[in-house]
């Protein structure tokens, strides 16, 4: 293992985060606070509780997942797309490092960044709504696994994309709708039966449900099923990356 190379890439990516602290950390926190105001206070004042949990508190896990997912995908996809775009990727490709090490560096940094955002949102929320975390370890596990899986997905998108438009396409057209329809702001039980069935095809439902269970012990699907869904998603992403690297897809023609 070339640990020095992994560390060099990781440090480089984290330095980028530091340079762009406003757009990296501050803006997702501000937008999350806006969600709290709109969904938590304005709408929440009319809903009050969902399955016995205060509505403001109910949406916290969903909000964290929303940020975690979109941030992981954007950070990782941008992290690998940008060197490709400006050409500095030549150095990484000519360095004595394996594909595995490249992924660890880039995905590790992207996941770290989105986890930081997740924790900041959790911290901010604790001042606004009555939070309760029943299973902190499982909560942490869900956060870490989700951040890594979606950073891997972002990495795939970053390698696949050959222009900035494609880079924005997936987060905008796939991730955001899936999260909004994945029960971030409501329980799946509140939907008409047809939509409930459709929702079960949405992988994000499993993530949010499991994550919410670690807070309030309420869930739309069994927590173990949620964990399984994350594991499957992680495996699929890793397989795709392994295939990309084996064939040199869009990196080494």
């Amino acid at each position: 293992m070339n640990f020095r190379a992994i560390w060099a890439i990781y440090k480089f990516e984290m330095a980028r985060t530091k340079r762009t602290i406003m757009q990296s950390i501050v803006s997702p926190v501000i937008s999350t606070c806006l969600y709290f105001v709109v969904f938590g206070s304005a709408i929440g004042s009319r809903i009050e509780t969902v399955e016995g949990v205060n509505y403001g508190a109910f949406i916290v896990p969903g909000l964290i997942m929303l940020s975690l997912l979109t941030q992981s995908v954007t950070n990782a996809s941008f992290g690998i797309y940008f060197p490709k775009f400006i050409g500095t990727i030549y150095e990484v490709l000519s360095a004595p490092i394996s594909y595995m090490e490249i992924v660890l560096g880039y995905v590790g940094a992207a996941a770290t960044k989105s986890l930081m955002i997740g924790v900041i949102i959790l911290f901010t929320a604790s001042f606004i709504v009555p939070l309760q975390i029943s299973h902190p370890l499982i909560m942490a596990l869900f956060m870490v696994l989700t951040a890594i899986s979606f950073a891997l997905l972002g990495f795939i998108i970053g390698i696949w994309a050959d222009n900035f438009e494609k880079l924005q396409l997936v987060p905008l057209l796939v991730i955001t709708p899936l999260v909004f329809l994945g029960g971030s702001f409501y329980s799946i039980n509140m939907l008409p039966p047809v939509w409930q069935t459709i929702s079960y095809f949405n992988p994000v439902v499993y993530l949010i449900s499991g994550f919410r269970w670690s807070f309030y012990e309420i869930s739309d699907v069994a927590p173990l099923l949620s964990l399984g869904a994350v594991a499957i998603f992680l495996t699929v992403c890793m397989s795709v990356i392994a295939w990309m690297f084996k064939t040199g897809y869009r990196l080494r023609d």
Binding site: N2, R4, A5, A8, E91, A95, P96
Partner: peptide
């Protein structure tokens, strides 16, 4: 310095 690290040198 990044380049040196990337090539695995202390």
């Amino acid at each position: 310095s990044f380049s040196r690290g990337l090539f695995g040198k202390p």
